[in-house]
Design a protein around this nucleic acid. Sequence first.
DNA 1: ACGCAAAGTTGACAGCGTTCACCCCGAGAT
DNA 2: ATCTCGGGGTGAACGCTGTCAACTTTGCGT
Lengths: 265, 265
Amino acid sequence: MAAVSSPVPRRERLRRATLDEIKQTAHAQLAELGPAALSLRGVARAMGMAPSALYRYVDSREVLLAELTADGFASLADALEAAFTAGDPHDHLGRWLDVARAHRHWALDHAVEYTLIFGTRVPEGGFVGTRVAAELQRSVTVLFRCMTEAIEAGLVDTGHVEAGLTPTMQVRLRAWAGDHGVAIDPGGMAVCLAAWTQLHGFLSLESFGHLPPALEDPADLFDRQMIDVFTQACRAIVPASPPGADDPTRPDRTVGSGPARMGGR
Amino acid sequence: MAAVSSPVPRRERLRRATLDEIKQTAHAQLAELGPAALSLRGVARAMGMAPSALYRYVDSREVLLAELTADGFASLADALEAAFTAGDPHDHLGRWLDVARAHRHWALDHAVEYTLIFGTRVPEGGFVGTRVAAELQRSVTVLFRCMTEAIEAGLVDTGHVEAGLTPTMQVRLRAWAGDHGVAIDPGGMAVCLAAWTQLHGFLSLESFGHLPPALEDPADLFDRQMIDVFTQACRAIVPASPPGADDPTRPDRTVGSGPARMGGR
DNA sequence: ACGCAAAGTTGACAGCGTTCACCCCGAGAT
DNA sequence: ATCTCGGGGTGAACGCTGTCAACTTTGCGT
């Protein structure tokens, strides 16, 4: 069963094991009590150790929460990537809808993580350089690839969109695309951002309970909006009738392993 | 200065006064420390009274936070209504843009309130009947009126939108419109919801720092998206060049007064 | 002037994040 | 084989929090 000899020196292995257990326990507490009620003492209690012992692994409660936030972003990114790679590369609209639905289902299934990652202001002047930024970037990259590949396939007239942007916005969008190795003109970037904005707005309102309760299950409306935002970007392609109701594309979340300590001081 | 005789029996007046002071002090603490750091003891300390005395006016910390949340929604609704009534009733696109910008400026100027009201999951199965619901409804009503009045002016072909909705969604949208006294068909409601979704998505991402930092000041992009969501609803009307940069429409917040006690038990 | 309810205070309890001083034990060096 | 040393873990403590119960003060209405 076990490997004959491990490349990591046992000491480190045990350390990682308990750190994983800490994160796992914290995740459980988070899921049933909400972010505000997560307590280090509670985690320690559940693990059967003294509260102060946690500080050998975690610098503070805030750092632990940040780590869980990053895990949440990573989980979402995994779900989106799975939906993307499982989709048909030639059916751009269908794949976009798959990814969008995967995003929605992740949001509904992981309610507390969703509020943690999308209902919290970023701490101080952006989290540039942190793991959170990288994981968020991964999600955005998937969403954008749905559109950029459609653009590259010639489905969108980005020129007429670009014409509607101010010059400063054009250079910023171009610079940002260049930073992330995307060869798409500013008009295409604007299209991607509009799609993301619409997607996030819907999920945020639905997840936080701000949508009118009379709508009950707004899955139809979500599909409609996602189809519209796509077809309005690339005019035409497809008639305006919604596809089948249920989708087989609902991946599970996976949790990545982090460094040996959180928030190194 | 003072009125000769007050209709409220002085006792009640004093009570309301200190309750207002509590809310005001709590608001101040909220604004500089964030929702998580607001403490009843801190408020009591700032007011120079014993912590337990607050319980004569507030049932719990949570109730106080809920009250501040409702105030936040009310403040936003006031801002939107002010922008709406100040706008030109014949320039539907311009007025929509005014209201959207007012929303954005409110979000940026009232950062902590924004996270409090739009970054928090609604407690339990919707806040139907609470003051929060009413104030949120006020905001939504203003946003929707921008679109519905344009629809009534004949600028939108809602029929072709309605055709893209599932039957169940149509009846739900119709029922919801009926509940709020809006005489707009389901297609029009879907248009309104799409606009709201897009608006909220942008502001949520921007306020919480999830937009790419390279965009710096995304005011241009916001305008562009708001114009697009309008013109794509009512195709045509207006060429695709963004209007002037600065807007005179930036109302201040106002705070409404509540009942004599919070969270009556 | 009296009584009574409301307003406010003191004190306590439980729980929280965090730190400090100490112990224990496995691993590496002598 | 012994000594040392550092990382894992414990227990107690500090200061903070929300909240409650008992007590005191205050001021209005009769």
